[in-house]
Design a protein around this nucleic acid. Structure first.
Lengths: 148, 148
DNA sequence: TTCCGGGTGGGGAAAAGTGGGGAGGCTCGT
DNA sequence: ACGAGCCTCCCCACTTTTCCCCACCCGGAA
């Protein structure tokens, strides 16, 4: 179960070092094979390969003629890229994905249960601002009874 | 059942010493394993690990595409960090969480039943001001019959 | 006043992050 | 077709940070 945010640096070759606390889990689940793709919220998704496959298949089943489904397919499947961790626990982020999510040197890796999100520093801060700005009406539909 | 507020100090390494009166309970429940995460009201949440899991799972079930649900997932799960008490009963508060809740040296640990909240001194005072400022209409919907 | 428990700070060892260098493979030019 | 140059991927080593443990100090109670 992946959780927690870490500030990481993209090195000159476009690699990010996965925090050590997550490496063991990733090696076990998928021998370090990961799938990176684009998320509509302008961040990247990082899935262990086995967790990605059912998601990909579900997206691919959607109609190619329904405009929103087509967009989703192009984004999620079109950008998907399989990468492996190197011996130092790093993964390469391809230039096209880096450009899509506007990643600079400083990035944030955010655990989301089954997968991670990778944010640019600016994008991640903006996301927090949004949350703090909501104020009341914080709970989404269907979760009105949720309490901490 | 945790209750009561304590003023604590963050040391130079970002550690807080849990008050001795709560240590035994935390050791019993979860061997001192705690989960720290961010709260939308700009404070931190501290859960004993077993109490956190059902909350996390409930949040993760929400849709990633409903905007508020996505924000909530990123905040609650994205910031969650598992930490253990050291031999002196202290827990480390990671830099990203400290920054989120704007914690300085003086902080407040506030018992909230199943969990704690950790506030910056300024945030905690502001919270009290808010309550005093409300005046009439003090009771929220659904609690109109509540009386002390 | 002395003992005990809780709070605080500091130091050292081990592991993790970062950057550089070298070898292998592919491509292009001759 | 063969050789040279470049690009890419992989591995190794250094630097930095993090984590853990120990020692001291302060306050309270007996």
């Amino acid at each position: 179960m992946f959780q927690g945010a870490s500030q990481l640096t993209l090195d000159a070759k476009g690699r990010v070092a996965i925090p050590a606390k997550h490496r063991e889990a990733l090696s076990t689940v998928s021998s370090g094979r990961l799938v990176l793709t684009a998320h509509p919220h302008r961040c990247l998704l990082i899935y262990p390969e086995p967790a990605w496959e059912p998601k990909r298949d579900e997206v691919l089943r959607a109609s190619s003629f329904e405009p929103r489904a087509a967009l989703l397919k192009r984004l999620l499947v079109g950008f998907a890229q399989e990468e492996s961790m190197d011996a130092a626990g790093r993964v390469l982020v391809s230039p096209s994905l880096r450009q899509f999510a506007q990643l600079e040197k400083q990035v944030w890796l955010v655990g989301q249960g089954s997968h991670f999100e990778l944010w640019s520093e600016a994008g991640w801060l903006a996301e927090q601002e949004k949350m703090l700005a909501i104020g009341a009406d914080l709970l989404p539909p269907g979760m009105e009874s949720f309490s901490l």
